[in-house]
Amino acid sequence: MEPGVDQNISRRSFLNNLLGIGVVGWLGSVLFPIFEYLKVPPQSEAEPTSVVAAKFKDLKPNHSVVFKFGSAPAILLNGPDGKMRAFSGVCTHLQCTVQYRPDMQKIWCACHNGMYDLNGRNIAGPPPKPLQEYKVVVKGDDVIVSKA
Protein backbone atom coordinates (compact mmCIF):
# COMPACT_ATOMS: atom_id res chain seq x y z
CA MET A 1 0.00 0.00 0.00
CA GLU A 2 1.26 3.39 -0.92
CA PRO A 3 1.30 5.98 1.80
CA GLY A 4 -0.79 8.24 -0.49
CA VAL A 5 -3.64 5.78 -0.63
CA ASP A 6 -3.47 5.30 3.10
CA GLN A 7 -3.59 9.04 3.56
CA ASN A 8 -6.56 9.19 1.21
CA ILE A 9 -8.39 6.61 3.21
CA SER A 10 -7.74 8.35 6.52
CA ARG A 11 -8.80 11.67 5.00
CA ARG A 12 -11.98 10.05 3.77
CA SER A 13 -12.86 8.58 7.12
CA PHE A 14 -12.06 11.90 8.77
CA LEU A 15 -14.43 13.66 6.39
CA ASN A 16 -17.06 11.00 7.01
CA ASN A 17 -16.74 11.46 10.75
CA LEU A 18 -17.02 15.20 10.44
CA LEU A 19 -20.04 14.79 8.21
CA GLY A 20 -21.58 12.50 10.78
CA ILE A 21 -21.04 15.03 13.53
CA GLY A 22 -22.42 17.78 11.30
CA VAL A 23 -25.55 15.78 10.53
CA VAL A 24 -26.09 15.04 14.22
CA GLY A 25 -25.62 18.72 15.09
CA TRP A 26 -28.00 19.74 12.35
CA LEU A 27 -30.58 17.18 13.40
CA GLY A 28 -30.28 18.59 16.91
CA SER A 29 -30.93 22.12 15.69
CA VAL A 30 -34.04 20.91 13.85
CA LEU A 31 -35.40 18.50 16.41
CA PHE A 32 -34.78 20.69 19.47
CA PRO A 33 -37.33 23.32 18.40
CA ILE A 34 -39.80 20.59 17.49
CA PHE A 35 -39.53 18.86 20.86
CA GLU A 36 -39.72 22.18 22.65
CA TYR A 37 -42.76 23.06 20.56
CA LEU A 38 -44.52 19.89 21.58
CA LYS A 39 -44.00 20.59 25.27
CA VAL A 40 -47.24 21.85 26.73
CA PRO A 41 -46.91 25.50 27.76
CA PRO A 42 -47.95 26.49 31.30
CA GLN A 43 -51.22 27.81 30.06
CA SER A 44 -52.23 24.80 28.08
CA GLU A 45 -54.85 26.20 25.77
CA ALA A 46 -55.52 29.28 23.73
CA GLU A 47 -57.83 31.65 25.55
CA PRO A 48 -60.69 32.74 23.41
CA THR A 49 -61.41 36.44 23.81
CA SER A 50 -63.63 35.43 26.68
CA VAL A 51 -66.64 35.45 24.52
CA VAL A 52 -68.19 32.79 26.70
CA ALA A 53 -68.14 34.87 29.87
CA ALA A 54 -69.86 32.44 32.20
CA LYS A 55 -72.03 29.40 32.48
CA PHE A 56 -75.64 30.37 32.77
CA LYS A 57 -76.37 28.15 35.73
CA ASP A 58 -73.30 29.38 37.62
CA LEU A 59 -74.31 33.02 37.53
CA LYS A 60 -77.18 33.47 39.97
CA PRO A 61 -79.35 36.58 39.87
CA ASN A 62 -77.82 39.52 41.70
CA HIS A 63 -74.32 38.16 41.04
CA SER A 64 -71.61 39.10 38.65
CA VAL A 65 -68.34 37.95 37.14
CA VAL A 66 -65.40 39.98 35.88
CA PHE A 67 -63.65 38.49 32.86
CA LYS A 68 -60.98 39.42 30.34
CA PHE A 69 -62.45 40.71 27.12
CA GLY A 70 -59.86 41.41 24.50
CA SER A 71 -57.22 43.31 26.38
CA ALA A 72 -59.45 44.82 29.04
CA PRO A 73 -61.63 43.54 31.83
CA ALA A 74 -65.38 43.39 31.39
CA ILE A 75 -68.16 42.67 33.84
CA LEU A 76 -71.10 40.39 33.27
CA LEU A 77 -73.88 40.71 35.76
CA ASN A 78 -77.07 38.91 36.31
CA GLY A 79 -79.31 41.61 37.70
CA PRO A 80 -81.72 41.15 40.60
CA ASP A 81 -84.39 40.94 37.90
CA GLY A 82 -82.55 38.00 36.32
CA LYS A 83 -81.56 40.01 33.27
CA MET A 84 -78.03 39.50 31.94
CA ARG A 85 -76.04 42.59 31.13
CA ALA A 86 -72.42 43.08 30.26
CA PHE A 87 -70.31 46.20 30.36
CA SER A 88 -66.76 47.27 30.00
CA GLY A 89 -65.20 46.70 33.41
CA VAL A 90 -63.04 49.78 33.17
CA CYS A 91 -64.25 52.67 35.29
CA THR A 92 -64.56 55.78 33.17
CA HIS A 93 -62.99 57.89 35.89
CA LEU A 94 -59.46 56.59 36.43
CA GLN A 95 -59.60 53.20 34.72
CA CYS A 96 -59.93 51.04 37.83
CA THR A 97 -61.78 47.77 37.47
CA VAL A 98 -65.36 47.99 38.66
CA GLN A 99 -67.30 45.39 40.61
CA TYR A 100 -70.90 44.59 41.28
CA ARG A 101 -72.25 45.27 44.76
CA PRO A 102 -75.20 42.99 45.42
CA ASP A 103 -75.98 44.90 48.61
CA MET A 104 -76.38 48.19 46.72
CA GLN A 105 -77.54 46.59 43.47
CA LYS A 106 -75.12 48.86 41.69
CA ILE A 107 -71.88 48.58 39.82
CA TRP A 108 -69.30 50.06 42.07
CA CYS A 109 -65.74 51.26 41.65
CA ALA A 110 -63.70 50.83 44.80
CA CYS A 111 -61.17 53.48 43.88
CA HIS A 112 -63.32 56.56 44.32
CA ASN A 113 -66.68 55.17 45.19
CA GLY A 114 -67.99 55.70 41.68
CA MET A 115 -71.35 54.14 41.01
CA TYR A 116 -73.18 52.98 37.94
CA ASP A 117 -76.70 51.71 37.78
CA LEU A 118 -77.68 48.37 36.30
CA ASN A 119 -77.70 49.93 32.85
CA GLY A 120 -74.12 51.12 33.21
CA ARG A 121 -75.10 54.75 33.65
CA ASN A 122 -72.88 56.74 35.95
CA ILE A 123 -75.11 57.83 38.79
CA ALA A 124 -72.82 58.83 41.63
CA GLY A 125 -69.26 59.72 42.34
CA PRO A 126 -66.64 60.86 39.90
CA PRO A 127 -67.21 58.71 36.77
CA PRO A 128 -67.76 61.14 33.90
CA LYS A 129 -69.24 58.68 31.43
CA PRO A 130 -71.40 55.57 31.47
CA LEU A 131 -69.78 52.15 31.00
CA GLN A 132 -69.71 50.83 27.49
CA GLU A 133 -72.35 48.16 27.12
CA TYR A 134 -71.74 44.82 25.41
CA LYS A 135 -74.17 42.45 23.85
CA VAL A 136 -75.13 39.35 25.82
CA VAL A 137 -76.49 36.22 24.23
CA VAL A 138 -77.39 33.08 26.12
CA LYS A 139 -76.79 30.01 24.01
CA GLY A 140 -77.56 26.81 25.82
CA ASP A 141 -75.63 27.07 29.06
CA ASP A 142 -73.10 29.56 27.68
CA VAL A 143 -73.42 33.26 28.28
CA ILE A 144 -71.70 34.81 25.31
CA VAL A 145 -70.59 38.42 25.42
CA SER A 146 -69.72 40.32 22.27
CA LYS A 147 -69.18 43.88 21.27
CA ALA A 148 -72.50 45.16 20.06
Binding site: R11, L15, L19, G22, V23, G25, W26, S29, V30
Partner: peptide, 19 residues
Protein backbone atom coordinates in the same frame (compact mmCIF):
# COMPACT_ATOMS: atom_id res chain seq x y z
CA UNK B 1 -25.82 28.59 15.75
CA UNK B 2 -27.97 26.63 13.32
CA UNK B 3 -26.72 28.71 10.39
CA UNK B 4 -23.18 27.92 11.48
CA UNK B 5 -23.99 24.23 11.64
CA UNK B 6 -25.67 24.30 8.24
CA UNK B 7 -22.78 26.23 6.68
CA UNK B 8 -20.30 23.72 8.03
CA UNK B 9 -22.47 20.88 6.83
CA UNK B 10 -22.78 22.45 3.40
CA UNK B 11 -19.01 22.80 3.17
CA UNK B 12 -18.47 19.22 4.32
CA UNK B 13 -21.08 17.94 1.90
CA UNK B 14 -19.43 19.86 -0.87
CA UNK B 15 -16.06 18.33 0.04
CA UNK B 16 -17.68 14.91 0.17
CA UNK B 17 -19.17 15.37 -3.30
CA UNK B 18 -15.79 16.42 -4.65
CA UNK B 19 -14.14 13.47 -3.01
Amino acid sequence: VSTLIVTLLVILLYLKIRQ
